[in-house]
């Protein structure tokens, strides 16, 4: 439908107000809220992610686009509650202890919500113990950690070590990211997923969960 194409374009351009207006339009035209999510918001996010990867988009465009998308998710959430769909999965996320950087982590939160995860944002300066406690409390599928300083990266390892020592390692998928984090580092501490950016994080998280469900089901 044309209006869905327009929603995608408006999100890419970071135009929150226009996204809001277009969503109302789409609902009037008879789209279901879930159609708008599946054929509007999610493809928009995937497109933004692709453009970031191809270096056509940079941090500010991604931030603006994700703001526009969060406007969309907020409006739709009322309607979506009337026709609930199981969340894709549950994530606890935060910036690790000793680190106050928030921008990147907030982006991942928005992207994860965009693809249908139930996300508990623990904020910044989150201790290993808090990650564990909240992951258990919320029955999370994924623990997602961000660090922006090489000096705080070792905190991620602490979380993995505690999971192992308490025999909880298999219960959670561990995701890590942040500017100084590399694939090699992620492997070395035994994390399951590392992605370079927020959009890929959401896509990979979804894939990993689907794969896990297949394996167990």
């Amino acid at each position: 439908m044309e209006v869905l194409e327009e929603i995608i374009a408006a999100i890419e351009a970071g135009k929150g107000k226009r996204v809001k207006w277009l969503i109302m339009q789409a609902l009037e035209e008879g789209c279901t809220p879930w159609e708008i999510v599946d054929f509007g918001l999610i493809p928009a996010m995937e497109s933004v992610t692709r453009k970031y990867h191809d270096e056509q988009f940079f941090v500010p465009e991604v931030i603006l686009a994700s703001h526009a998308m969060s406007v969309g998710t907020r409006i739709l959430s009322e309607y979506l509650q009337e026709q609930p769909r199981e969340p894709v999965g549950t994530v606890v996320i935060g910036t690790v202890k000793g680190d106050l950087h928030n921008i990147g982590k907030n982006l991942v939160v928005m992207m994860l919500r965009g693809v249908g995860f139930l996300v508990y944002d623990l904020g910044y300066d989150v201790s290993a113990e808090t990650f564990l406690k909240k992951a258990i409390e919320y029955e999370a599928d994924i623990i997602c950690m961000s660090a922006m300083l090489t000096t705080t990266m070792p905190q991620m390892q602490k979380v993995v070590e505690r999971l192992v020592s308490r025999r909880l390692r298999d219960r959670f998928i561990v995701m890590v990211g942040g500017a100084p984090v590399t694939e090699g580092f992620a492997k070395s501490i035994g994390a399951d997923i590392y992605t370079k950016d927020a959009g890929m994080a959401a896509i990979e998280a979804k894939k990993a969960l689907e794969y896990r469900k297949e394996q167990s089901g």
């Binding site: 940079f58 941090v59 500010p60 931030i63 106050l100 950087h101 928030n102 921008i103 910044y124 922006m148």
Partner: peptide, 17 residues
């Protein structure tokens, strides 16, 4: 302290252009 400052983060995005 800037890294968790909301205004700073807003400016930081804005002035990247």
């Amino acid at each position: 302290e800037l890294s968790s400052d909301k205004d700073f983060n807003q400016f930081y995005t804005e002035y990247m252009f």
